Amino acid sequence: MNKNIIFQDLGHRDYKETWDYQDELFKKTVAMKIANRREDAGLVTPNHFLFVEHPHVFTLGKSGDMSNLLVSEKELAEKNATFYKINRGGDITYHGPGQIVGYPILDLDNFFRDIHKYLRLLEEMVILTLAEYGLKAERSPGETGVWFDVGTPFARKICAMGVRASRWVTMHGFALNVNADLGYFDLMIPCGIKDKAVTSLNVELGKATVNQEEVKAKLKKHFTALFEAEFVTPEVAE
């Protein structure tokens, strides 16, 4: 099993451009798996992990309800935001500046064949990262993602998740609010869940901004520990 993961930080990148790149990596891995099954090609499937920060964008999952977007596409354009219907699970979500978005494109045959476990480990990565800032985050039963004060009137979500998997290859991933403009969340019903707030790490810590590079380093540390994996650069992978 190949537990090396090719890591790339794409910086600030358009959502559609990044989605196309994800899809390219995803399809190549799936094609390799098909070749291995049909021709016993002996190909070692790669794993990838992308960090990116998108311009303002709203995305609707394949099971999502368009009514959860509370403004027209014209009004979105006036706020310099775009909108896409995409092929991940989940409902509507927002990406934008001040948010760390992570896209693991993994062949789970290299790790374990369990989507439920995969999502729980992604949540655990975020929970452990937030614990390093003295914050007690948790899961909300039946609601994928990471939250604070679950079961109280003050429940609020800090990290959304939505993935797609085919032949045990994953794409899409998680979005952690670090220095996010929370006003954009008022333009939708986040993940289709009414009456629950959204928060950001800087708000929880009472700071103007939080060092996002520091947060990324902590996420990477916990991801590799939980998945018993190692990050490599694209150059090393070649």
Score class of each variant (00 low, 15 high):
P153W: 10
G98L: 07
Q99I: 09
D149L: 07
R113K: 15
I127F: 01
I115Y: 04
D149I: 09
A131M: 10
V101H: 02
G98I: 08
E143Y: 15
K117V: 10
F148K: 00
R156V: 13
L130H: 00
P141N: 12
F148G: 00
L130F: 00
E143S: 15
V150Y: 05
G142P: 06
P141A: 10
A137Q: 03
L121T: 13
V126S: 01
F112V: 14
P153S: 07
A137E: 06
T129R: 05
P104L: 07
R113M: 15
I127G: 00
I105L: 13
L122S: 01
I127M: 03
W147E: 03
E138M: 11
E124I: 14
D109R: 13
P141D: 06
L121F: 14
Y118G: 10
K136M: 04
D114T: 07
E132I: 01
E123T: 11
D149G: 01
D114Y: 14
Q99N: 13
W147D: 02
L122W: 02
P141F: 09
H116W: 06
E132K: 05
R113G: 08
R139W: 04
L121E: 13
H116M: 13
I100C: 09
R120P: 05
F111C: 09
F148T: 05
L135T: 10
P104H: 12
G98F: 04
G151C: 05
H116Q: 14
A137H: 04
E138L: 07
R139H: 07
F111H: 13
V150G: 03
A137I: 13
P97S: 11
L122H: 02
G134P: 07
A131T: 11
G142Y: 10
L135D: 07
V146L: 03
F111N: 12
T152R: 06
G98D: 06
I115V: 15
F148R: 00
Y133M: 01
V126P: 00
R120I: 08
T129P: 02
A131C: 08
L122M: 06
R113Q: 15
W147H: 05
M125H: 11
V146F: 00
R139C: 07
V146S: 01
V150E: 03
F112Q: 13
F154M: 07
M125C: 14
R139S: 03
R120F: 08
L108D: 05
R113S: 11
N110I: 04
Y118W: 11
A137W: 03
Y118A: 09
K136V: 05
D114S: 12
L122Y: 04
E132Q: 12
G142D: 05
V146H: 00
H116C: 10
P97M: 08
L106I: 12
F148S: 00
P153F: 08
